[in-house]
């Protein structure tokens, strides 16, 4: 019996040792093989998500070192569902060793689901491929369940004292404005000062009542100024132009020599000056069209006299009317 026991011990021990070795070796061999999978993930909160929110998911995945990510296998940007948009998907190789590679995957979604009450939803599962030269391995990012909240209450209770059902949303706060009262005052003071200066300048230059003056008064002032340059050949032409402008303004159209009779018929106040007006048009023809007139100071005086007479006649007519 003892011999049998000893023999049993001699035979069994090596067998046990061999089994142990085999188990150990097998475990060590298995431990060397890296499994493809998600190592770490950051998915943010899965509740209280509102319509329009952007959802960002980060995954760190590992693959055996000989595999590398196929970029084209990343889901393309665009609509995943009628309510879910994939805004962006990208990846980054974050570590690499002899045994494994680790990638960080980043998916950005935006949800447009507008629930009227709290709703459970899920993003669809996404698949990413890794390959070596001849082998391909796929990793599925699982669906992500979350709940979406409505933007407003279904049964409004009103805000504060306002029980109006349509007013349960709070009004925006009015923006605070920068005080401009001082600036406004400064602008007013500046504007008034400028206006006073402009009026002062206009009155000094003699332009202040120019628009209220009769056309012949205006012409008189223009001719008077031009008289100072009587030696300049063009001065007399400009003086004639000024008087012509006065006639045109009063007639309401371009007035020519052959229309003076009609003009005087319409403006009876000038009837006493028909000869002077005809002489002016004759002088103008000689100077401007025949170009046979060499103007002298006397001609300027004749124009000034005519302007004064006609302005006087006009003033008298206005007083009478």
């Amino acid at each position: 019996m003892a011999i049998h026991k000893r023999l049993k011990q001699k035979v069994c021990m090596p067998m046990f040792m061999a089994v142990l070795l085999a188990v150990f070796c097998n475990t060590a061999l298995y431990a060397d093989q890296v499994r493809t999978g998600i190592v770490q993930q950051s998915l943010g909160r899965d509740f209280g998500i509102l319509v329009g929110d952007v959802i960002e998911h980060y995954y760190i995945v590992q693959v055996p070192a000989e595999f590398s990510l196929t970029p084209a296998s990343l889901p393309p940007d665009g609509e995943l569902d009628y309510w879910l948009l994939l805004l962006d998907s990208d990846y980054e190789l974050i570590s690499e060793s002899a045994e494994l590679r680790q990638y960080r995957l980043h998916f950005t979604f935006q949800t447009f689901y507008a629930p009227l009450d709290v709703r459970a939803l899920a993003t669809p599962p996404l698949t990413v491929s890794f390959n070596t030269g001849d082998k391909t391995e796929q990793l599925t990012i699982p669906a992500w369940n979350f709940t979406m909240s409505p933007l407003k209450e279904i049964a409004p209770r009103g805000v504060a004292k306002d029980s109006n059902q349509n007013a349960f949303m709070k009004a925006d706060l009015p923006p605070s404005t920068i005080p401009t009262k001082d600036l406004q005052q400064q602008i007013w003071v500046l504007a008034i000062t400028l206006l006073i200066l402009a009026i002062l300048w206009l009155s000094l230059k003699g332009y202040l009542f120019i628009l209220t003056r009769s056309p012949f008064q205006q012409a008189y002032h223009q001719v008077k100024k031009l008289r100072k340059h009587h030696n300049d050949e063009s001065a007399f032409n400009h003086a004639l132009q000024a008087v012509h402008r006065a006639f045109n303004r009063l007639a309401g159209h371009a007035l020519f020599a052959h229309q003076t009779d009609q003009f005087i018929d319409k403006h009876n106040e000038f009837s006493g000056y028909q000869d002077q007006i005809d002489s002016f048009y004759q002088l103008s023809t000689e100077a401007l069209y025949s170009e046979q007139k060499v103007a002298s100071e006397k001609d300027f005086d004749q124009l000034l006299k005519l302007c004064k007479q006609l302005a006087g006649a006009e003033k008298l007519a206005l007083k009478k009317s």
Binding site: L240, Q241, H244, R245, N248, H253, A254, L288
Partner: peptide, 8 residues
């Protein structure tokens, strides 16, 4: 045209 264009 005749009523509008002045000369000079």
């Amino acid at each position: 045209v005749l009523n509008t264009i002045p000369s000079p």
